[in-house]
Each structure stands twice: as C-alpha cells, then as structure tokens.
Amino acid sequence: MPLTGKELSALQQRAKKLRKDIVDTTVWAGGAHIGGANSIVDILNILYFKYARVDTKNPQWADRDRIIVSKGHAGVGVAAVLAEKGFYKKELLKTFNHFMSPFGMHLDCHRVPGLDVSTGSLGHGLAQGVGLAWGARFQGKDWKTFVILGDGECNEGSVWEAAMSASQFKLDNLITIVDRNGLMMDGTTEQVMGLEPFDKKWEAFGFKVRIIDGHDFTQLADALDFALENKGGPVVIIANTVKGKGVDFIENDVRWHYGSMDSALAKKAMESIDRMYE
C-alpha cells in the first residue's frame, strides 16, 4: 500500500534516529562500516517497520518473513535496526566489536536475535535466499524472503549462479534489493569492475527490474508493493543510494567504507543528520 503522510514522516524520523545510532555505535566500536550502513539503512527501515512480518517476542517464529543482508559488512546498520525494532536493547550496541560481544562487524545469527542469516563473505546471501524461498513455496508457506545485495558484491559469480536459479525456479516469493551506492573499497563500481548495464543484466537473468531512489520511502514502498504482488518469477529492485547518506562529510567518499569517529566528529555527524529532509 502507498505510504500515508503519517507513515512517511515516521519513517523519516526513524531514518535520522537510526543514523544517529549508527554513528554512536561507530564511536563505541572504535570504527565501523558506516558508509554502507548509511546507504542501506532506509531499505532496512521500511522493510522492518512497514513490510516484514516479524515477532520480536519470538525471533525464530517459523512463519516470519526472512531478511538476508548479503552485504554483511553493513552489520552495524542491521544491528541498529534490530535494536530499534525491539529485538534487544540499544545499550547492547555499546559492546559492538569488543571482546565476547554478540556483535562483530559481520553479524552472527546465533548471537544476534532477529538476524536470519550470518553473512560477511560476499556473494552468499542470494543463494541462501533462493533456498529459503524454494523451501517456503514447497511447504505452502506465504512468508517472503528479502535479500539485500551490495552492488560491488555483484562482481561475485555466485550472485549470478543464484540469480539464474531464482529465475529457473520462478521464485516470486523472493525479493532482491541491490543497494546501488556505486562505491566499493578501491573506487567506483564502474572504475573497478563495471556493472552497467546493470538492469539489463538482471533482465537477461529473468528478473523483473525496478530502479528507484533508495532513500525515497515513497519510491521504496511503490517498488516493494510491486514486488510483493508480482507473480511468476523474481523481482530485483535496484535502489540507487549514496554511500554514507545523511552524514554530509562522508557521503560518496570511498575512504569512508570503514571509518572511526571521535566524539567531536560524531557531533558533526549528528548535526548533519539533523539537517536531513530540510
């Protein structure tokens, strides 16, 4: 369903709060993948707070929707979202990266309540999503599987093996979203290993493609509505995003794939986040 004005405003308020939580965690952790977390966080925000069927009281609920963050280095963003959703207290994020913490840079589903799949090594999420979606359909279950890929991750051949099988198995209960922030560790995706024409590649693999602004909740809602109603095969949403979005001095800066912040820099980041949607 299209977003109401009230929903949009709530999502935007939460988008700011989540980014602040990510900045806080970056300080506590001594460093984090803040760039990719800030590009993906609006996608997670709308998934967990509008679309996904999950139960914070029963994280292992058999009929929950599954969300796989294949770009596992966005763990700091995922951890903030799951805390905000209520799977655990935000206080717990203070341990991030520290000895015996439930949270490392790449999250472990045995230690983080609400997390469906442990990821970190790139190119592993979509295949597991294919297996989950196949399993749900086989068992006559109506829960959905959402997989969020990084764009740089799409250099991995295993992504395309999985894409081929999603289409072969006609998995219309599998929704793939690419966080297309355009940057990878060594430069832009097009400099390092070009992906374009990216939409054509997915189309050639049998996907219906939607290209949207991944920070525009109205567009995200429209694309997700389309994907959820779609029948007969898989959908991919290419969400054009900005690495570091919301923290203006790190946006689109390849050096901020992973970074640390002291309290002064964090304060600057918070001020930038406050200016979002102005």
């Binding site: 979509l126 295949a127 597991q128 297996g131 989950l132 295993s158 999985a162 081929m164 099988s165």
Partner: peptide
C-alpha cells in the same frame, strides 16, 4: 557454490 548456498537456505526453511 550455488548448490551448497541453496541447500543452506532450504535447511533454514
């Protein structure tokens, strides 16, 4: 690679 990744997902389902 896809075989074992998909198997992991099938097990998780």
């Amino acid at each position: 690679q896809n075989l074992f990744g998909v198997a992991a997902g099938v097990a998780k389902s």
